[in-house]
Amino acid sequence: MVGGRLEVEGLTKRFGGFTALNGVSLDVKSGERFGLIGPNGSGKTTLINCVSGALSTDGGRIRFEGRDITAIPAHQRTRLGVVRSFQIPKPFISMTVLENLVIPLEYAAGARAERADCAAEAMDILRTIGLESKAHTRPAGLTQIEMRKLELARAMAAKPKLLISDEAMAGLSSGEVDDILTILFRLNERGITIIMIEHIMRAVMRFSERIIVLDAGEPIAEGTPNEIVRNSAVEKAYLGE
């Protein structure tokens, strides 16, 4: 059975007097490729911080595969299968690329078995993502695209059922964007549900089956890429009145 269904219901988050999310609801189905877009400051990152557990919520509920995860700590959500990558890569800088993957394998994937097995599995993941030649270098020696790939590889090592990819392509060339898209498509074919937050419209439109648009902490539109492109509210939000 394919897992990874995420239900968010009336999610609210305030910072002091500022309401970053105002009763946001969404329902991401198992195995879906889901796009989350919106102008800067619309609450996209806040939303995924709440879903991944980096931020606490001020109201609403988050359910993953039918289980209420609103109040459990981030690392437990990861173990359940909700895994995110960071917009600005946050590699473990004192470790080699391979060791970076061993951490989630050991902690999140519940493979607290032999280290040798972990290393072999980490190597497999690096191979599928095309980073095996860098396995024994430190992240400081990686290029921008390699850093993004490491971020994704590390997320894969946590054995996600739902992968939240936070602007994994910002700042990449169009060829590199295609590289990352290929990886994400392949992950999705394996049954991993994917939420993509992205500013590069070409990528989101091509990737997503369904898109939700946030503006000022509220969803203003939802639908297929084609419907979103034709939506006037979306245009207004992006281009102003």
Partner: peptide
């Protein structure tokens, strides 16, 4: 594994927590 977890959180607490390390 405790030592490796500590090392991960020293490098980035946020990333460690997101990779399943019980940082607290």
């Amino acid at each position: 594994w405790v030592g490796r977890g500590l090392r991960a959180l020293r490098d980035s607490e946020e990333a460690a927590e997101c990779m399943g390390v019980p940082t607290l």
